[in-house]
Design a binder for these strands. Structure first.
Lengths: 113, 113
DNA sequence: GTAGCCAGTTTCGTTGCGGTAACCGGCACC
DNA sequence: GGTGCCGGTTACCGCAACGAAACTGGCTAC
């Protein structure tokens, strides 16, 4: 594997641009990959609390990763959808998931050894 | 972009297999990509404290990502090197760094808007 | 008038990652 | 016999993330 020496230069910043590794960002993006979802359609499969989900969604909205659309109905309806920018994150995320899937046995074997 | 529907299935676990997003794992791997390094050669460029570096290295050693070789010399000399398994992480890491570099302006623009 | 729906917000408490500072052990040099 | 070098370890601490539970608000249906 040949790697551009400067490929990692932007990883040297104090805090990563997007907290890929935080507990929820990645899962929310994956949950939204097939189309918009409502608050309640995220909270159940993710098994996240309302507070943390709200915080995560707001942060991702601020970063331009997803959009929040509130319809003035009652009971309330709010839909969250990935932006094109958010969609571009699916590819590197897939790379990590593929690595996880491929090397999980190896890591677990190393851990138990 | 076409994505295997099951590609993300392994990301649904409670804790990710490797804490890619933790503050140091990624940087340590990048620091070791050109060959083995000593404790002191990691602590200076990373600007990490001894305690946290030790903890991170031990955890990565447990996971089989790197090896620790202590030479019985004095003053002590210890070298850390990526294993083949650790090297395979460079590729997905590069994907994330590339994303960061490519989309940083977009994110920052969204944040300030 | 009360109960339920949805999408939150508020309050309070816990946990764990990361940081600071001090100390350790063996040798080598002066 | 004191000092420095290297690679740690130990004790303590703060903050941000995470979580549980109760509450809100506006509308609808009974």
């Amino acid at each position: 594997m040949t790697l551009d020496p400067d490929l990692f230069s932007d990883c040297g910043t104090d805090r990563p641009l997007i907290r890929i590794g935080d507990k929820w960002t990645m899962k929310i993006i994956v949950c939204l990959r097939d189309g918009p979802r409502r608050f309640g359609e995220l909270i159940v499969p993710l098994r996240i609390t309302a507070k943390v989900l709200t915080e995560s969604l707001r942060a991702m909205e601020r970063d331009g990763l997803l959009t929040r659309t509130a319809y003035g109905e009652n009971p309330p309806r709010v839909e969250y959808a990935l932006t094109p920018l958010g969609r571009t994150l699916l590819e590197p995320l897939a790379a990590i998931c593929a690595w996880s899937a491929a090397h999980q046995p190896e890591v677990l074997r190393a851990r138990s050894a």
